[in-house]
Amino acid sequence: MQGHPITILLAEDNAAHARLVMRSFRDHAVENQVIQVDNGESALDYLFQRGEYSEIDTQPDLVLLDLRLPKYDGLQVLAEIKKDKALNSIPVVILTTSDAESDINMAYEHHANSYLVKPIDFVEFSKMLKDLGFYWLVWNKSK
């Protein structure tokens, strides 16, 4: 399967988990540019091209968003993206350890495009991100 690489904004405050995501993409040869931010404020700064990201002039093709983030949490970031006309078409995938029904419902209520629970096992984790990578590659190609 072929596609041109996409840019992913990864908002994840846990460095070990961020590395897991990167590793999974690398292992499956999913070529992406991944920009990692470790808190909700930075994620919003990147998307709205302000603060330390004021020089940025492109939007990511996909946002991978943890729910529990310092400063602004994932739901707040999600809500800001979805209520902005220029940003609301960017697919947002929630990637979190929480499988609480309330979190899942809240995420979809805020128009998350997908909700993924971090599996505890690396093989599964890796497979999930492989699928995710391919899915969005195809999605991106068909655009």
Partner: peptide
């Protein structure tokens, strides 16, 4: 969250 780290990194 740390459990995910431990198990995944063991893999």
């Amino acid at each position: 969250s740390p459990l995910v780290t431990i198990k995944s990194y063991a893999g």
